[in-house]
């Protein structure tokens, strides 16, 4: 009986964490290149005694928030008109050289720094296909679908679009940047298309975000009902009725 009580508590805690994740997704619904976080629940086997019975296994599996994964589906591509706003269609990331090392981003709101480098809004150099900072000579800039950056019609550099192995888990760092595990192989993404003059929006749409919110809310309600039943029906009966028997 008590294990059921704690299972419901664990479930409720997991739903509150899921609510936090859903809130972050909705708050970032307009953040360029934001990748939505999809949480998943996993059962947690408590009390694995010496001889776990089938009943024990079923009763003592708690649903906890197992973790979350970034969803890498495509976000909408919005036209901005700035020549150096770049959006990636397909798999891949832009590589950015930050003070803390190589980071990846899908937020292509880049511009030319006073020193003539292609940089992010935080003034960090964006890397070329050969992982070097990209310097842009003065003149009118155009970027082609293959990432080739031309100045006044003459090809200058190629903006690098990279992908990581499937098993490399990217972790979000904030400021629209993602960190790859150390010593992960960074490969060139050949299938990605770069759209100049556009920005990729978040891949979190408001409809799904709201549905998720509703679902979490209902599930939390169920956990709360379960807790109330355990509390009022079982514990109360045990404490109030039994002594009179």
């Amino acid at each position: 009986m008590d294990s059921g009580y704690y299972a419901a508590v664990t479930g409720l805690v997991a739903r509150t964490q899921a609510l936090d994740a859903a809130a972050a997704n909705l708050a970032n619904a307009q953040t360029p290149g934001y990748r939505a976080v999809r949480e998943y629940f996993r059962s947690y086997l408590m009390d694995s005694g010496a001889e776990p019975s089938q009943i024990g296994l079923a009763v003592n599996r708690y649903g906890v928030l197992g973790g979350d994964r970034l969803s890498f589906t495509q976000g909408p591509i919005q036209h901005t008109g700035n020549a150096l706003d770049l959006a990636i269609e397909g798999e891949g990331f832009f590589a950015v050289n930050t003070a803390r090392g190589l980071r990846f981003t899908r937020d292509g709101s880049f511009h030319r720094s006073p020193a003539g480098l292609l940089v992010t809004a935080a003034n960090e150099p964006v890397l070329s296909a050969s992982k070097q900072p990209i310097s842009i000579p003065p003149g009118e800039v155009t970027v082609g679908g293959d990432g080739v950056l031309s100045v006044a019609g003459a090809a200058a550099e190629t903006v690098g679009v990279f992908k990581l192995p499937v098993d490399a888990q990217l972790s979000a760092e904030g400021a629209n940047r993602y960190r790859a595990p150390e010593n992960a192989a960074v490969l060139a993404s050949k299938e990605a298309v770069v759209h100049a003059g556009s920005i990729e929006g978040a891949n979190q749409d408001v409809i799904h975000g709201s549905l998720e919110l509703l679902m979490i809310q209902r599930q939390a309600e169920m956990m709360q009902k379960a807790l109330t039943i355990f509390h009022t029906e079982f514990n109360k009966t045990a404490s109030e009725t039994l002594p009179r028997v």
Partner: peptide
């Protein structure tokens, strides 16, 4: 996969 919760 970790459990990372964004703060907005």
């Amino acid at each position: 996969a970790g459990l990372q919760i964004g703060l907005g």
